[in-house]
């Protein structure tokens, strides 16, 4: 009785087949379709024309740049805030489990719902944020209306919605660090700040890897929040590749849309794969 008999590969078949047909086949054929002019029925091979068009249209380039900016800003913010919140919420504060719950809840709520709500909350004149700021004598910015700010305003909401997950991942990571390290450091006379940077940060690394990778992948692919809040506007100022892909699809430019798709996944691969590799190479051996 070999493992080939005990663990037959047909176990993989049911959903493996679904995965193959509905995920892998489109992914692979996308490379071909991105080289064509395409109306879903007929294809005409046009070489790299879709790509060259992509890199000539300024708004498409903005989309690519915004994608990277959005991914970077949100994942950096989530990991830094997540770690700080995790440390705060494991320090035995009054009401810390309530706070954990409160911060995590938005993770589970519909992104579109959050997006719509925050569009109103960020209303430049009547929105809650700017009204609140005006009590403090601050004249709040035009969050989603200002083309220079719109993308970052959406990023802010994305961080608000996602930081709870980062926090909980960090809390799980912190729980694996033995308190011996902190006690040893205390005996060596380390300050709280030194302990944070010399012990917590390096030892919580697996959690950091998870948080950064997860938020990068979802940040680079992010579509629903942006679509619910700005639709890429004002103008094209908050367009990302995912919204460009949708717009080109709506407009019937299927080849171009698919080229955008390929660019997005090359971008994701180019950023995430080396990063994971680098993270793993610098693993702290315990």
């Amino acid at each position: 009785m070999k493992s080939s008999r005990s663990y037959p590969y047909w176990f993989i078949l049911p959903s493996g087949l679904i995965y193959l047909v509905l995920f892998l086949v489109p992914t692979v054929t996308a490379f071909w379709f991105s080289l064509t002019q395409w109306d879903l029925f007929e294809t005409r091979f046009i070489g790299l024309e879709n790509y060259s068009q992509f890199f000539q249209e300024p708004f498409l380039i903005t989309g690519a740049v915004n994608t990277v900016v959005f991914g970077a800003v949100t994942s950096i913010a989530k990991s830094i805030l997540g770690l700080l919140l995790a440390v705060l919420l494991t320090s035995g504060l009054l009401g810390q489990s309530f706070l954990r719950t409160l911060i995590f809840f938005p993770v589970l709520v519909s992104t579109v719902g959050i997006g719509i709500a925050f569009t109103e909350i960020m209303h430049p004149a009547r929105g809650m944020i700017n009204v609140g700021l005006s009590y403090l004598g601050i004249h709040g910015p035009a969050w989603l209306i200002d083309p220079h700010l719109a993308l970052f305003s959406v990023a802010l909401v994305d961080v608000w919605k996602g930081v709870g997950l980062a926090t909980l991942i960090y809390i799980a990571g912190l729980a694996t660090i033995s308190s011996d390290y902190y006690e040893a450091a205390r005996i060596d006379g380390a300050t709280k700040l030194q302990m944070f940077f010399r012990i917590t940060v390096p030892l919580v690394r697996p959690a950091t890897v998870t948080v950064v990778t997860l938020s990068l992948i979802s940040g680079l692919r992010s579509f629903d929040l942006i679509w619910a809040m700005t639709k890429g506007g004002p103008g094209f100022s908050s367009d990302v590749l995912a919204s460009v892909i949708y717009k080109q699809y709506q407009a019937g430019f299927y080849g171009l849309s698919t080229a955008g798709n390929i660019i997005l996944f090359v971008l994701v691969a180019l950023i995430v794969v080396p990063l994971t590799y680098w993270f793993n190479r610098r693993e702290v051996d315990l």
Binding site: P26, L40, I217, T258, L264, F265
Partner: peptide, 21 residues
């Protein structure tokens, strides 16, 4: 590699629509 691809790669939407059709 296939499993990680599924976690990472954004689905190619228009080819998927074509296939679904």
């Amino acid at each position: 590699a296939l499993i990680l691809a599924g976690l990472m790669i954004p689905p190619a939407v228009v080819p998927t629509i074509w296939l679904l059709k």
